[in-house]
Simulated scan of single mutants.
Amino acid sequence: MITSIRLFIVLILILLSISSTTAMAKEIKYNHNSITVPDIKNKVDFKVFTPQKVPGGWTLETKTYPWGEKEKFTYIRLHYMDTNDTKLIIGIEQRKQLRLQDERLESNSKQVEINGYKGYFKEWGNSGQLDNNHGELITGGLLSWNQEGTHIEIDSMRLTEEKMLEIARSMK
């Protein structure tokens, strides 16, 4: 009887872990008539990366710059929004590789590893405080690195450093 209960608990745990893994969406729903990532890839001179680990239900709004340009973009932003499309969860900016200089970075930046590349994480100055506009605790910060000729910056006020790094490390 005890063996049967243990087996049942193990099966439940396995099912829960599988369902949480499959909650990571492979395809994302675009919002606001955004240009798709495959279309963007044809209009930039750098490699475009997208995170493979984003929760199901997030929507994606793409932004291209310079504003109003239709054929050649110098940089892009991917805005991942909540299920209701009302809150920005994470922003990912990409452009041609920039030179990251250690001496240029402020002393409160922390060096991190992302996909074999040196990156930097800087916590927001008001991290841990309550955002009076949204009634949420401010977390996260700014994460930046160069990967395969592309400079990537991720910013979030809603995700922890650990969650931001998990998403960054899933960039393919």
Rank of each mutant, 00 (worst) to 15 (best):
R6F: 15
R95V: 00
Q94E: 13
I2W: 11
Q94K: 00
E153S: 11
K29F: 04
V37K: 07
H151T: 07
T83Y: 05
T139A: 09
E148D: 15
L13S: 07
L165C: 04
G125K: 11
K29M: 05
T36N: 06
H134A: 06
T62H: 07
M1Y: 06
L7T: 07
T62S: 12
R99H: 06
R95I: 00
L13W: 02
L16E: 09
S4G: 14
Y30A: 09
S170G: 15
Y80D: 08
T74D: 12
V44S: 04
E123S: 10
S34G: 05
T36L: 08
V10E: 01
R6Q: 12
K63N: 08
L7V: 03
N84A: 14
S170K: 15
H151A: 14
S107C: 00
E93C: 01
L7P: 00
S127V: 02
S17V: 07
E166C: 02
L130C: 11
G149H: 05
I2L: 15
E161Q: 14
W145I: 07
L137Q: 12
V54L: 14
L143Q: 05
V112G: 05
N108Y: 09
V37F: 07
M24K: 14
R95A: 10
Q111P: 06
K172R: 13
T3K: 15
L98Y: 08
Y75P: 00
I18Q: 13
K110H: 09
K70T: 14
G57S: 06
K96V: 12
E153A: 10
E123W: 00
D45L: 10
H32S: 15
K26C: 02
I114T: 05
V37H: 05
P66D: 12
Q111M: 11
P38I: 10
E106Q: 08
L7Q: 13
T59V: 11
T50D: 02
K63E: 08
I28S: 06
T139K: 15
I92K: 06
I92N: 02
K96E: 13
L105K: 08
M1C: 02
E166H: 03
H79G: 02
I40P: 03
K163S: 12
V10R: 05
G135S: 06
K110E: 15
L16K: 08
E153N: 10
Y120V: 03
I138G: 05
K43C: 04
M157C: 03
R104V: 01
L15P: 03
K172M: 05
N33I: 01
G140Y: 05
I2M: 12
I2G: 08
K29I: 11
V10Q: 02
L13Y: 02
S127M: 02
K53D: 01
E136A: 03
G128A: 05
A23V: 11
F73G: 02
M164I: 10
Y30S: 07
L142H: 01
S109P: 00
E123Y: 03
K41C: 07
S144P: 00
I114E: 07
P66Y: 13
N108Q: 10
D39K: 13
W124Q: 06
N108K: 13
K118I: 10
I18A: 15
K118C: 05
Y120P: 00
K41V: 07
T21G: 04
L13D: 00
K87S: 08
E71W: 01
L130S: 08
L143S: 04
G57Q: 09
E113L: 08
Y30I: 09
W58V: 14
V54K: 02
N126Q: 01
Q97G: 08
